[in-house]
Every structure is written in structure tokens, then in C-alpha cells.
């Protein structure tokens, strides 16, 4: 698949990554090579092979529905830039 710079810029924007022009053109090359490898994988005949949701051959363990956590708000909020009335404050979100 031919990757263009607009694709890279869009992916970077979605992931909220700031990239320079120089980086953008380098990522076009790097990511194109990865996609070439994916293309190669796509050509393999996988009829009759079940999709793999996880590389580990195991199933999810479940926990009992019990409250085990205590209130540690003060500890957690120590690393937040701004808090008030127990709330984390963030730049205004425009709806």
C-alpha cells in the first residue's frame, strides 16, 4: 500500500502526536515498509484458521464482585496539575 504524508499526519493527529515535517517524511518510509510486510501476511491463505484475539493461549480469569479499593484520592491528586473540590481541573472542554 502506498502511504502518503496526509495519512501519517492524520494518524499522528488521532494519537495527539506532534511531528515535524522531517519526521513526517521519515515515517512515510518506515510505515510503508511495515505495511508492505502486512501485505505479505495478507497474501497467506488463512481459510479455516480461527482469528487469534490474543497471543496467549489462555482465557480471561474473573474476579469476585467485591469492593477492595479504598479512597486514595489525595495520593492520586498529588500528581495532578490542578484540583479543586476533589475534582481534576482540565482546560475547558468545548461541547
Amino acid at each position: 500500500m502506498a502511504l502518503e504524508e496526509t495519512h501519517v499526519r492524520r494518524a499522528a493527529h488521532l494519537a495527539r502526536l506532534a511531528i515535524s515535517d522531517d519526521q513526517a517524511s521519515r515515517f512515510v518510509d518506515d510505515l510503508s515498509q511495515i505495511l508492505d510486510m502486512v501485505d505479505q501476511l495478507q497474501r497467506i491463505d488463512t481459510d479455516g484458521v480461527a482469528p487469534l484475539a490474543h497471543p496467549l493461549d489462555a482465557t480471561q480469569r474473573l474476579r469476585a464482585d467485591e469492593v477492595t479499593e479504598t479512597n486514595q484520592r489525595d495520593t492520586f491528586q498529588r500528581c495532578a496539575p490542578v484540583v479543586e473540590d476533589g475534582l481534576y481541573l482540565v482546560p475547558r472542554v468545548v461541547e
Binding site: 464482585d65 486514595q72 492520586f76 476533589g86
Partner: peptide, 27 residues
């Protein structure tokens, strides 16, 4: 109507003090 959250052991009770029921997993 579970007592605890889907992926953590923090309480789901309604109306608690802000962020008093948000544990490391929820955060």
C-alpha cells in the same frame, strides 16, 4: 448493578464525594 467496577475493585455507589471511588485502574 454490581458492587464494584467492571475492571477494578472500586465501589460503584452513586453520589459519593468526587473522585473518592476512582482507583489506579480507573484512572
Amino acid at each position: 448493578a454490581t458492587k464494584s467496577k467492571i475492571f477494578s475493585g472500586a465501589s460503584t455507589a452513586f453520589g459519593a464525594e468526587p473522585n473518592s471511588q476512582a482507583c489506579a485502574v480507573d484512572l
